[in-house]
């Protein structure tokens, strides 16, 4: 399945673009997605934390991803 992943802040700078298009096996979990991305972009693994948002909510590591999900990487937030 094809996933589109939105990138913000430091993750956008690490990857070098605001959006990633990936083809991954059907039913891939949040954790598997993160592991794959950290292998391709080791600097992602050096962040204090890295969460995944699915449809505007923080996703659990074992949550399965779907092709039409709105997915984003969430590096440590620093609003306020």
């Amino acid at each position: 399945m094809k996933l589109s992943i939105a990138l913000f802040g430091i993750t956008r700078e690490i990857v070098g673009q605001p959006q990633l298009e990936l083809t991954v096996p059907e039913g891939q979990s949040v954790q598997q997605l993160l592991a794959g991305l950290q292998q391709t972009y080791p600097a992602l693994g050096e962040l204090r934390s890295l969460a995944v948002a699915v449809n505007n909510e923080y996703a659990q590591p074992d949550a399965p991803l779907h092709e039409r999900d709105e997915i984003a990487l969430i590096p440590p937030v620093s609003g306020g």
Partner: peptide, 25 residues
């Protein structure tokens, strides 16, 4: 709670560079 969960990021600009706040341990 806003500071913990809301996806907003700030980058500090100094005279000699920039840093994304709290990004690294």
């Amino acid at each position: 709670t806003l500071k913990e969960v809301v996806p907003i990021w700030k980058k500090e600009e100094y005279e000699d560079g920039t840093v994304w706040v709290a990004a690294h341990p």
